[in-house]
Simulated scan of single mutants.
Amino acid sequence: MVDTRDRLRIDKWLWQARFCKSRPVAVALVSGGHLRVNGQKVTKPGRAVGPGDVLTFAAHGQVRVLRILACGTRRGPATEAATLYELLEGDRPDQETV
């Protein structure tokens, strides 16, 4: 049995981690097939993700690869959002969001 307490919808996680300005923008990113979770294309915004999952997506003209470290409980300030992931490839997270 999988513990779902440390899992969150991918669209909500992208919004809380400040990669998308709003939930509808995050839904469009995922629904458009522009995101991979652990190397597999995801098109459902309700897909659950959690710590250890690796996300790959394009933002601001470059591909970002990151590992989820935690699921947030709210959309907090950028400093708090930066603790939710580890950037493996791509630009620094302090640039503007999608």
Rank of each mutant, 00 (worst) to 15 (best):
T56L: 13
L87M: 15
L29K: 11
L35K: 00
L66I: 11
K21C: 03
G61K: 05
A26T: 07
N38C: 07
E89G: 01
S31G: 12
R47S: 09
S31K: 15
G46E: 13
G90S: 04
H34W: 10
H34Q: 14
V37Q: 08
E86T: 09
A81L: 12
R18W: 08
V27F: 11
V37C: 14
H34G: 08
T56D: 11
F57S: 00
D3Q: 07
R64F: 11
D53T: 05
P93H: 02
C20I: 07
A81R: 13
R5C: 00
L29A: 08
A28S: 12
E86F: 02
P45E: 03
G39M: 10
V49M: 06
R64K: 10
Q16V: 06
G61M: 04
G33C: 07
A59F: 01
A70Q: 11
G46L: 01
R18S: 06
Q62C: 11
Q16R: 13
R23C: 04
A48R: 13
V49N: 04
G46A: 15
R23P: 03
R64M: 10
T83E: 14
R74W: 11
V30A: 09
H60W: 04
I10M: 10
R36G: 00
V49G: 04
W13R: 05
V30M: 06
V42Y: 08
G50V: 03
R36Y: 06
R67E: 15
V42I: 15
Y85F: 15
E86P: 00
A78C: 09
A58C: 09
K21R: 15
Q40C: 00
M1Q: 07
I68V: 12
N38K: 07
C20R: 15
L14K: 06
A48C: 01
K21L: 04
K41I: 13
L66E: 02
D11I: 05
R5D: 14
W13Y: 12
V30E: 05
T56F: 00
A48Q: 15
R36T: 10
Q16M: 15
I10K: 06
A59K: 15
E86K: 15
V30G: 10
L84K: 09
E80P: 00
S31D: 13
